[in-house]
Design a protein around this nucleic acid. Structure first.
Length: 320
DNA sequence: AACGTCGCCAACCGCCATGAC
DNA sequence: GGTCATGGCGGTTGGCGACGT
């Protein structure tokens, strides 16, 4: 079967952006026929348009259809797209059927221009949705990862959030200095970077963990699940405490390590699970309410510091 | 102000699936 | 079963505005 001839190949058929007059003619024609098109091939002539039928169909389905939702994608929509893409791959039209008023073209564009880059920054392969090898994420800074993770929701992104948290802890655990962990250029002021990380974590980590664990618990219907979570909570407390102790200079002293660790873990688990894990819930609110001493913005002026300056500003504006 | 670069997104291209004959 | 016409789909392009130098 050879390729069928298409009117688009006709000489003199207009291409390129649609004018308001053309849009109006197309909409009026389709509305005159009750919103139904029997033949796209014959439509241009009937509507008085010097356009290919295919071009008319695309313009209608992607832009002029009355039920199309315009404007920015919400966090829920973004989360849904990521989850559906993980299941379906580049089946944009199928994905579009799950989002009211969004077209496959719009979703595809949004994926390629926003989500794809965001996942790469987080060290996640946008094709496989698996974590990239360490070499590939060497340039992914914790701040960028956290910022990206913070804008995501949903169960699949909870896994990304866990990865983000792990990277954060690795950075904080880098011998007391994130610069020493090799996560940023050596020329960057280490104290400023550490404070940046801590401020980012102060804004983001509690909500990351809370969301993550709420989702896990909401999916854990059996007592066995809860038991596993409680056991995991206990292990996590010890791991977090160990890392924070090693990072005492960064977090403001060893005295903060225990309450911070307890609070991080307890914030991650709903009350009934925290009780099962027999861990105190204290101290974290105090830490959150006390601003940590920040480096002067004036000291972050050269090009290499621009990223951290941006991150400091971003993290300070994120909701708790 | 002029120029270059980059990112976004509407639109196009070409292949595939499907249904009519 | 073969051919053709058409719609649907995913990949890609190019125009345009924003931004930086």
């Amino acid at each position: 079967m050879g390729r069928s001839p298409c009117c688009c190949h006709d000489a003199g058929v207009k291409k390129g952006p649609w004018t308001e007059e053309e849009d109006r003619a197309l909409v009026e024609h389709i509305q005159r026929h009750g919103g139904h098109v029997s033949s796209w091939r014959n439509l241009p002539k009937a509507a008085g348009l010097n356009r290919c039928g295919k071009s008319c169909r695309l313009r209608w389905t992607n832009y002029l259809r009355p039920d199309i939702k315009r404007g920015n994608f919400t966090a829920d929509e973004e989360s849904l797209i990521i989850r559906l893409h993980a299941q379906l791959g580049n089946k944009w039209s199928t994905i579009a059927t799950h989002l009211d008023g969004r077209t496959d073209n719009e979703i595809k564009n949004y994926w390629n221009t926003h989500i794809r880059k965001k996942l790469l920054r987080m060290g996640i392969d946008p094709v496989t949705h698996q974590r990239l090898p360490p070499d590939d994420i060497a340039t992914a800074s914790p701040g960028a990862i956290l910022s990206a993770a913070a804008s995501l929701g949903g169960l699949s992104s909870a896994l990304m959030q866990v990865q983000a948290l792990q990277l954060l802890l690795q950075a904080v655990n880098g011998g007391g200095s994130a610069a020493a962990a090799g996560l940023m250029p050596n020329s960057i002021n280490a104290a400023a970077a550490d404070n940046a990380i801590l401020n980012a974590s102060r804004s983001i980590v509690p909500s990351l963990l809370q969301d993550q664990m709420n989702l896990l618990v909401s999916h854990a219907s059996s007592a066995d699940h809860l038991s596993n979570i409680a056991s995991f909570a206990e292990q996590q407390h010890d791991v977090v405490l160990q890392r924070l102790n090693a990072s005492a200079p960064v977090i403001g002293g060893a005295a903060y390590a225990e309450p911070l660790a307890a609070a991080l873990v307890s914030a991650a688990y709903p009350p009934e699970v925290a009780a099962a894990a027999d861990r105190p819930v204290q101290g974290f609110a105090h830490l959150l309410s006390e601003p940590i001493e920040m480096p002067s913005m004036c000291s972050l002026e050269d090009d290499e510091d621009a990223f951290w300056k941006d991150m400091l500003l971003e993290s300070s504006s994120l909701p708790l």
